[in-house]
Each structure stands twice: as C-alpha cells, then as structure tokens.
Design a protein around this nucleic acid. Structure first.
Lengths: 289, 289
DNA sequence: CTTATAAATGTATTTTTATTACATTATTTT
DNA sequence: AAAATAATGTAATAAAAATACATTTATAAG
C-alpha cells in the first residue's frame, strides 16, 4: 500500500526534483511503462538518451535497490491500476474511458476497506449476531437497498430478520425493542438524525446496536459496536457509490462468519430455501443474485 | 487476464505434468513466491536443489520467455491477489482469514467485469436511457435491492423512474407500457420465469427492454439490449454476492454516462436534490450513500 | 570573469545473472 | 537387455547490471 502503488504517479509529478538525465529517464518510462517492465537497462538508457548508470542511479533515487527491483515495483504499480485511481471522471470522458475509471474506483474502495478492517471487531459483531434473537436492518436513502440486501442474506439463518427503510417504522421498532434484539444501522455519513435517534431509543431499551458508518460520527458514538468505513476521497463527485459496495461486502463477510460459526447444524435449512426457489426458474437450480 | 493470474494457482495444481526437477522448482517457488520474485536464477536453483538450466526450462514450460519474464509474471499474479481468488472460504476459516478472501473475491469479480464490458454496448444503453420518457427497474429476490438502488441513482435525472420488486406490479406495468418506456430488468440467472415474461410483455407493447443478466439466458434473448455479466465460478458457495456488486457498478457506469451526456444542463436539478436533504442531517451537507 | 568546488553524467571495467550448447544420466520401449 | 528417448546437469557463452573512476557541466566565491 505504500511505495509500489505510487511509483508511477510519483514519476509523473512535476514537483519531483529530477536532474536533466533523470527527467529523461522518467519521461521514457512514462512513455511506455508496460514496455519498461520488460526492458533491459541498456534498452531503457538508449530510449531515454542517457547512459546506463544514469538509469541505475534513477532507480536507486526512487527507493529501489537497483534496476531489476525497480522494474518489479513498476510492474506491481501498473497491476494495481494506480493509473486510474486518482483520475476522476471528466466532462469529456466517453464510455470506453469512464467505464474502467468507475470500476477501478470501486475496486480501489474495496481494497482500501479490506486493508482497514479489524478482524477482531468482525469477530465481535459475529458474536452479537449469533447471540441475537431478532435482527433488524435499518437504512435510509441510498443505504435502504443495502439494508434490504442484508435482509436477504441473513434470511438464511434461523434468526428472524427484517429490513426497514421507513423512518417511522424504524422509530417504532426501536422504541418497542427488548434485550436480545439486534439493530444493524447502515449510514454512510452517520449523521442522519432519524437513525441516530433510533439507535439511542434501541439502546435505551437494552437492545444491541451495531452500525456500519463513518468514523467518529454521531451514529458511531451512539452504537454498541461501530464498523467504520472510510472509503475516502470522493473523487467521484457525480454519484457516490463505492461506499455501498464496501457496506455490501462487509455484510457478506459478517454473514459468512455467522454461517461458519453455526457450522454444519444449519445446512438442511439452507437446502430447503434453495429448493423453494427452483419452481420459479426456467431450469437450473441456481440462485438468483 | 490469462496467464499471469493463473500462474501461481497453476503451480499448485497437482494435475500439472511436471518432471521431478520441475516439481522441485515448483515447490521451491510455492514455498516463498514473494521471495522468488526477487531471486536470481542461481538462488532459486540452489534452494530447489536443481541446476540452473532446469529452472530456466521450467520457466519456459510455463509460458514465460525466460527466468526474468517468469519472475515478472509471478509478481503480477501475486499482486492480483490470485492467491486467494480460488481459495473458497473453508470451514476452519476465522475472521482474519475469511475477511480478505471475501473482499478479494469481490475485487476479482469487478476486475473481470471491467475487462469484459463492451463500451459500445454501454454507449447504446446510454442512448436508450437518454431517449426514454420513463424508466422502470425490475428485479426479484436478491436483485430487488439492486433495482431499488438504481432507482435512487436515476432519480437524479429528470426522467420519471421507479423500481419494482413485486411480480404482479411488474407484470401490470409491462402490459400497460407504451413506446418511450424503458424497462431495465436485472436478474443474475436470466431464468426467472416472471421476469422473462415481463420482458416479452413490455416488448409486445413496443417499449424498450434492457437486461443486466447472464449470457445466452432466456432473459438476454427476450431483451432489446442485454448487458451480460459472467462473474464466473461460484467458488463462493456460501452466499453469492459478487454478481450484485458488478450489477451495481455497471448501473453506476450507466448513470454516469447519462450524466455526462446531459452535461451542464441538469446541474441545477442536482443541486436542488442535494439541498432538500440537508435538513435531515446533523451537519455537513454530504450525501448519504 | 575567472577559478575552485561540487554536482551530474558518461566511459570502461567488473561482477552478476541468464542462456545456450553439449555431455551425461536416467527412463522407457521393444 | 539394448536402443531410443527424455530428463538433467556441466561448462561455456552471452547478456545484463553494478561499480569505480574519469570527464564534463553547472554553481559559487573571489
């Protein structure tokens, strides 16, 4: 997550204090980074119009132990798609250019989330889910569908589960809750007033509240456990979505954890659900997703 | 998307017809692939207990032009997280081990989708969306929340839009449709009987039908335009989800395309929506997602 | 405007690394 | 068991990279 990813972007930055020869090398690499990863030092030196030791020095200056190590890091940096990550969609983009940009932004968000998740917290969350007698998923606006998706996922377990998007219903359920009830509240900002109040109501009734939300937000503070997602810079000013993918994947992680915890015991239950769906299909017993 | 990703997995497969010396090389690499990417051929030969040419031959057998090329491909294969991709979640996994597995599976699915999307098709879809007078998003089961998410995304445009999960409502709307109506039908399998019939009904009424579904499925055939997603091997036998992420991202791509197409004209409309949400927040005008 | 100094770059050499040609050893087939 | 074939290793060669050192170029002080 440190050097490799930024190597290419580093090269391109005009702020870099490169000497003349080094700048030539940087330009030659930037002209065709892909090729550089398969070039010899002699070839690159020639195409840059400098001597071989200059290339070597360039590599060392950028933190590599030598030219081969530099090539390796360059290849890694290319593979991680760093080229696109910071490039927001622009006015003059067309389908072939903005499509990979959006996918890369999503991929990047998932990578970031993956690397920032604390497994111990996940473990605790799974504990709570397994211990609960009833689960409610709450979300408003864009997070509504995420809550609904979670309902489908968790329906597979024997614990009663439901998702709600209506603020009034959420409030009523929270007020009427009791110990053993688990509320999973999803909000990107963690600042939606209704949801924060709902969390407080539920905790007043001694129910458990887990939130999937922004770090240090009011909702995070109002929860027993908060899984905080900082998907970061909204380069994507048009329509934020990456956070939802992170939320969905996170819920999948939790659901998987619960499945593993329950072990073999619940397999028949799953098979029954699957079987109940086959009649609605043309053929193939595969699950709609 | 071909060799690099599979290199490591290839090595590990016992089905591979390796000679004795080659097997030793494979084992030595598998013992520490990360180190191998930075090793010389001599070092690897020694740690494998074979001669240098044996290592070289091994590399060529696996499709590389030589040892350096092999190292490059190996590094790439490591970077893409290939290690985890085919490793399904196992019974004895714990939070620290299955969490990255699930994230990697999702990331892989998005990468695969990104590389398989035809921008021309996206372009056509955007054409249809822009040309439509009314948009309906249909999904059932797990695809229901996806449709709902799409509704939120497309609500930002001036075209009336709604999402429906109820089969009866879907059927009624399709039957009552007219030219200028656009139906976007989301189904992972493309075999849900109700949705396929709905598509036919809509087309009978001269409405346009776009589906996001499986290749060569009944639904794909019943649509005017079909964006087919083959997220592939369901290693993830527990809870399929990767396809939904691909669908969501794809819808985001389309929505972005529409935004770009409409250009500046609709900016005030967006600003109005954003403003209407601020009063429901603790502070910060940020958008819930 | 020179001259000392330091920085940057290149040349030539050495060292390391990878590949090839060929000999030897195992393995299979008849 | 002998011939043929495949597999592997040894030794030589070629390629690549790094180093030491010379030369040039730039910079600053007098």
């Amino acid at each position: 997550m440190t050097t490799p990813q930024n190597l290419l972007t580093n090269l391109a930055q005009p702020t870099q204090a490169f000497s003349k020869a080094e700048q030539k090398v940087a330009n030659a690499i930037l002209a065709n980074p892909e090729l550089t990863t398969r070039s010899s030092i002699a070839r690159l030196a020639q195409s840059a119009g400098v001597s071989e030791p200059s290339v070597n020095r360039f590599c060392k200056r950028l933190g590599a132990t030598g030219f081969p190590d530099f090539k390796l890091k360059l290849a890694l940096s290319l593979a991680s798609g760093a080229r696109f990550i910071n490039s927001a969609v622009a006015e003059d983009d067309t389908a072939p250019t903005f499509t990979p940009k959006i996918f890369n932004a999503s991929i990047h968000a998932l990578e970031k989330t993956r690397d920032s998740i604390d497994p111990k917290l996940i473990h605790h969350v799974i504990d709570e889910v397994v211990a609960s007698k009833r689960i409610y998923f709450f979300g408003q606006g864009n997070s509504g569908p995420v809550a609904q998706d979670a309902e489908f996922k968790f329906f597979r377990f024997n614990t009663p589960v439901s998702a709600h998007q209506d603020p009034l219903m959420q409030r009523m359920l929270a007020a009427a809750s009791k110990p053993g009830d688990l509320f999973v509240i999803i909000s990107y900002t963690g600042r939606t007033i209704g949801l924060v109040e709902t969390a407080r109501l539920a905790r007043d009734s001694l129910a458990t509240v887990i939130s999937i939300t922004a770090p240090a937000s009011p909702l995070a503070r109002a929860s027993d456990l908060a899984i905080t997602l900082d998907v970061g810079e909204d380069t994507d000013e048009y329509l934020p979505m990456t956070s939802r993918l992170a939320q969905l994947t996170l819920l999948d992680v939790i659901a998987t954890g619960v499945t593993l915890r329950q072990g073999q015991a619940h397999r028949p239950h799953l098979a029954r659900i699957k079987a109940s769906l086959t009649s609605t299909r043309f053929d193939s017993a595969q699950q709609d997703a």
